[in-house]
Amino acid sequence: MSQALIFDMDGTLFQTDKILELSLDDAFNHLRELDQWDTETPIEKYRKIMGMPLPKVWETLLPGHSSELREQVNDHFLERLIKNINSGKGALYPHVEEAFSYLTEKGYSIYIASNGLTEYLQAIVRYYRLEQWVTETFSIEQIQTLDKADLVKTIIEKYSVKKAVVVGDRLSDINAAKENGLASIGCNFDFAREDELSQADRVIDDLIDLKTIVPALDQ
């Protein structure tokens, strides 16, 4: 039996899309108030780079702005994300609770490895009471390289994991599995791309499918 399942958060467990546009608009309205932005909010550009660590996101969205301003926008964005989570404007994907309950009952340990920031991840875990199933949530902030493969390695080393499956929607999740010698399950959800999912060992359209897919990977 696999000892662990390591889940991505955004676009895998949490429907980030429900609060993304609201929060991003707020962040760019802040820039407009500072006379640092005068066009539309680059929501589609952000969708294409979902999964990147936020420092990389702001480098991409604001290439001509100072690092100090990017940090200011990042702080504002994070504040709005958390407010929207706590206001109930977000949502988990269907069947997260059912899948987690089943997997823990079968003896699997569950971890989260995300490119999201710690405070943001804690807000989601707390609001949806995921701590009842999740052993620990790991943020990309915890490692210097900002490489998800290294973050997954941190989990493996801390908990002496011998066998695991990484579940996520983007190539960074699939590569994190490969670089650590683990199996991967791609989630064909909102931000997923077909060319990236094709590199996963298995692909699912609903988290409830984990009830059959995970045991099959153990055989």
Rank of each mutant, 00 (worst) to 15 (best):
R129P: 08
Q142P: 04
D150L: 14
I85N: 01
Y120G: 07
D169T: 05
K89G: 15
L130A: 05
K158W: 13
D147M: 15
E105C: 05
H95C: 15
V152F: 07
V165Y: 02
R170M: 04
Y93F: 10
L121D: 00
N86T: 02
R129I: 12
I112V: 07
T104P: 11
E97G: 15
Y159G: 02
D150S: 06
D147E: 15
S139T: 07
A164D: 01
V167L: 03
I124A: 03
T137A: 13
A176I: 00
V152R: 04
I155P: 02
F100D: 05
I143Y: 00
K162E: 10
G88K: 09
K106P: 08
L117H: 12
T104E: 04
E141F: 07
V161D: 14
Y120L: 10
N84K: 05
G168C: 09
G116H: 01
Q142H: 12
V96E: 00
R170G: 11
L117K: 13
E98V: 00
I124Y: 02
N115L: 07
A164Y: 00
I110W: 06
D147H: 08
L121N: 15
S87W: 10
R126F: 09
S109E: 14
Y108D: 00
I85F: 08
K89E: 15
I124C: 10
A149S: 14
Q122R: 12
L92F: 01
N84Q: 08
E105M: 14
F100Y: 13
K153S: 13
Y102E: 04
E136Y: 11
K153I: 04
T118D: 09
D169N: 09
E141R: 01
S139C: 00
I85T: 01
S87Q: 15
I155W: 09
T118K: 01
T135Q: 14
W133K: 04
S101H: 04
V161R: 02
T104R: 13
Y108H: 00
V152I: 00
G88M: 11
T118V: 04
V96M: 09
L151H: 06
L151K: 11
V152H: 01
A123W: 13
R126N: 11
L130N: 07
V167Q: 02
A149G: 06
Y127N: 07
V152S: 03
K163D: 12
S114V: 05
